[in-house]
């Protein structure tokens, strides 16, 4: 579903290379996790895939369901089925959460040549999905992420993901700043979306999120590359021994 080949990317301003030839394939129906120490380039990978400015791809390719996404604008990538749950969801005063969601859903439908979702259907769907994530009506009415707690912001990301029904979901440190209960709610939301035609890329520092979102494959990323790939047991190994051994092994 998501294929990344020999991806190299640098910071546009400093020219510093962050991704140094990364290969990764996320198949439909699978959950891949990426773990790695600080500064290994995990978040950069998510930004480069989603099309954030400030990075230059110098080599390699990334395709989503066969389409080259690196040439696309961020909104085109979204319409093609890519979703990035932000580590720090952005607060946008004066723009209602519902207005934002509806604009996004309909913009994507329009880009895909589908009809806009009518107000009643949209409302019904949002309410049902919000209920599962314990997002109340008051939160839906507020401006985007304004006055939301850390947990509420992350749940709001998952709500957006649920409404937009992407093909590939990238979760960038979705567990950061969450207590156990909030993490469980978020994980339940993600698990509910697992399906044979959707792939997940879960970026995390810690193994604990992977207790709740059980991955099929775990990658260890260090210094802009994947240095080791394995099953869920790899995450447990990290939890126990840290990254140092693996880095040595790979060197």
């Amino acid at each position: 579903m998501l294929e990344i080949k020999n991806l190299k990317a640098s910071l546009e301003e400093e020219g510093k290379e962050i991704l140094k030839g990364l290969d990764l394939t996320v198949e439909a129906g699978k959950v891949h996790a990426i773990m790695g120490p600080n500064g290994s380039g995990k978040s950069t990978l998510s930004y480069v895939l989603a099309g954030r400015g400030g990075y230059e791809v110098t080599e390699g390719a990334a395709t989503l369901a066969g389409a080259d996404i690196l040439e696309m604008e961020p909104e085109e990538r979204a319409a093609a089925g890519l979703f990035l749950a932000f580590q720090y969801p952005v607060e946008i005063p004066g723009v209602g959460n519902m207005t934002f969601l509806r604009t996004a859903v309909n913009a994507q439908r329009k880009a895909r040549g589908q009809e806009e979702m009518d107000a009643a259907t949209f409302l019904k769907e949002v309410r049902a999905k919000a209920k599962d994530l314990k997002i109340d009506a008051e939160m839906l009415k507020r401006p985007v992420n304004m006055g939301f707690s850390g947990g509420e912001k992350k749940r709001n990301e998952i709500l957006q993901m649920a409404m937009l029904e992407p093909k590939v979901c990238i979760l960038d440190e979705t567990d950061s700043g969450l207590d156990v209960d909030a993490m469980k709610l978020v994980a339940d939301g993600v698990n509910a979306m697992r399906s044979p035609d959707r792939g997940f890329l879960v970026i995390t520092h810690y193994q604990r999120l992977l207790d709740h979102i059980v991955p099929d494959v775990v990658h260890i990323m260090v210094n802009g590359r994947i240095i080791k790939t394995g099953g869920p047991e790899l995450a447990l190994e990290v939890e126990k021994n840290g990254y140092a051994n693996m880095i040595e092994e790979a060197a």
């Binding site: 099309g51 990538r77 979204a78 932000f86 934002f100 604009t103 996004a104 913009a107």
Partner: peptide, 10 residues
């Protein structure tokens, strides 16, 4: 970028 990443055109 946040808005665009959700599919809202620039």
């Amino acid at each position: 970028f946040y808005l665009r990443s959700r599919g809202v055109p620039k």
